[in-house]
């Protein structure tokens, strides 16, 4: 018994000795990411769907009927580039209110991190099979000239404009860019991975064990920056449109932001 007490006391001293106020603590931390959505500054939820009430930069009135997108390789990265994986991927579905908030418990050090993720699957990740995504028809047919993989986003709705007064459909579907060989395009361009990375710095993990990160997706950005999107010209059948996919990639870069005024 005396021996046990002796060992206990010695171990306690060692443990106490290791800990000091200046050390960085490894702690179990609950990390929550909320995925919020807006049209410019106006919050968007599923209750705002099916109403041709938003106006894009080109002046078309727009409704949202489906808005689901995939984020992959969601991770926290510290100053030494050491990554803590939070999730392999998430399919966020605003209309069905799925994955609008994601939580995970991670054993990480206190400190400053960046939150990083990819919009869509990049590279080899887009060639794997994901049964949950297949089950909700998020894949791209592999026998087609589009060569398989997965959608990055399905954004469906209707629009009206000065030339289209009856609401007409648009299917703003982001996928990897594949140039389809046809008589007008006898030498297709190389396929291009149009997924893109997003990084938000200065995520603080403090003592206390909980971090809440609010990521906003400004839907209007898909239509405005840097390219003013003309729905009269680019509305449906955009998946096999190589150039449209490049435009989506470029406009998508400014869609996501870190929200601090919650």
């Amino acid at each position: 018994m005396k021996k046990i007490i002796f060992y206990f006391l010695v171990s306690s001293f060692f443990i106490l000795g290791c800990s000091s106020d200046n050390d960085v603590k490894l702690q179990n931390t609950k990390i929550t990411i909320n995925f919020n959505h807006s049209w410019e500054d106006e919050k968007v939820t599923k209750d705002d769907f099916n109403d041709v009430k938003f106006t894009n930069k080109n002046g078309e009135k727009v409704s949202i009927e489906k808005y689901r997108y995939l984020l992959s390789n969601i991770r926290l990265v510290d100053a030494n580039n050491i990554e803590t994986k939070l999730s392999d991927y998430l399919l966020i579905n605003v209309g069905e209110e799925k994955n609008l908030s994601f939580s995970t418990e991670q054993l990480i050090l206190e400190g400053t991190y960046s939150l990083q993720f990819n919009f869509g699957f990049s590279g080899e990740d887009n060639e794997k099979d994901y049964n949950d995504l297949n089950s909700v028809n998020f894949n791209v047919p592999s026998d087609s000239p589009l060569n398989g993989g997965y959608h990055y986003m399905q954004f469906d709705g209707k629009y009206t404009s000065s030339s289209t007064t009856t609401p007409a459909p648009f299917n703003y579907h982001a996928v990897k860019a594949e140039d389809i060989k046809n008589p007008a395009q006898p030498t297709p361009r190389e396929p291009r991975d149009t997924s893109f990375g997003v990084t938000f710095s200065d995520i603080l993990v403090n003592e206390g064990g909980e971090v809440i990160i609010n990521v906003n997706s400004n839907i209007a950005e898909w239509f405005e920056n840097p390219h003013t999107w003309d729905l009269n010209k680019l509305n449906t059948v955009l998946m096999p449109d190589y150039d449209a996919q490049i435009l989506m990639n470029e406009n998508g870069q400014s869609v996501f932001s870190l929200q601090t005024d919650m």
Binding site: N137, N139, P141, D143, S144, T236, V237, L238
Partner: peptide, 24 residues
Amino acid sequence: GFAVFIDEARGDCFHCHGSEKNPL
């Protein structure tokens, strides 16, 4: 026929009915 089914410009049936990765 399957090519028509999965062609967004022709059938575009796959967005609702799935394709080779969804046997339902």
